[in-house]
Each structure stands twice: as structure tokens, then as C-alpha cells.
């Protein structure tokens, strides 16, 4: 029996949903960022899985996931920088208290 793709996709879906839940429920900005990383990783898993088990398998999927990882790294860096700045100005890292968009 050869390998099938659906277990990988299901796993990616589970991880994505957990990451989504974390991103939208946690109050600490750091944890929100972590959850976003988890969601990105779930997407990466999909890319790599399709690269091997998709309809048109090729290395392109892997290269794409490399780019995603790069973007994720950049995003994490900028995110942490913004977070630190916010913390310095507001004295908290609680996303619930970041409601400036209300005005």
C-alpha cells in the first residue's frame, strides 16, 4: 500500500485550527505570534505533502515552503519588534487592551 495524502492534510488542518484558536483567544501577544507560526507551519506541511503526493509532484512545493519559512522568519522578527515598541509605549503585552482601532 502506497502513501496517501489525506492523513497529512488532516494533520495540517488540525494544526491550523489549533493555531487559529490560539491566535484568536490568547491574550498575550507573544502567544498570538506563536499561534500564527503554528498556522504557517500547517500550511508548510501541506506544501511539502503536495510536493510529494500531489497530482503533479515536483520540487517546487518544497521551494515554496522554503520561501514561506523565510517570510515567517521575517514576520516573526518584525512582529516581535512591534510588540516591544508597543510594550514600551503602553506597558502591557495584552492584546485585549490594544483597542486603539476603536477610535
Amino acid at each position: 500500500m502506497g502513501m496517501v495524502i489525506s492523513p497529512y492534510l488532516t494533520l495540517a488542518a488540525i494544526l491550523f485550527c489549533i493555531g487559529l484558536y490560539g491566535a484568536l483567544s490568547k491574550k498575550s501577544a507573544i502567544v498570538v505570534l506563536l499561534s500564527i507560526e503554528l498556522m504557517l507551519n500547517a500550511a508548510n506541511l501541506n506544501l511539502v505533502a503536495f510536493a510529494k503526493l500531489g497530482v503533479n509532484p515536483s520540487l517546487t512545493g518544497q521551494i515554496f515552503s522554503l520561501f514561506t519559512i523565510t517570510v515567517a522568519a521575517a514576520e516573526a522578527a518584525v512582529g516581535i519588534a512591534i510588540l516591544i515598541l508597543l510594550f514600551r509605549n503602553k506597558g502591557t503585552a495584552d492584546v485585549v487592551q490594544m483597542d486603539t482601532m476603536k477610535q
Binding site: I30, L33, A73, A76, I80, L83
Partner: peptide, 17 residues
């Protein structure tokens, strides 16, 4: 990147805030 860089970055972030 993930297990190394980003995790460390996050820990730094935790320490800074």
C-alpha cells in the same frame, strides 16, 4: 529556523516584555 531562530526570538521577546 523554527526550532532554532524563531523559538529563541520568541524567548527574547518574552524577556523584553
Amino acid at each position: 529556523i523554527y526550532a532554532g531562530a524563531i523559538t529563541i526570538l520568541m524567548i527574547f521577546g518574552i524577556m523584553m516584555t
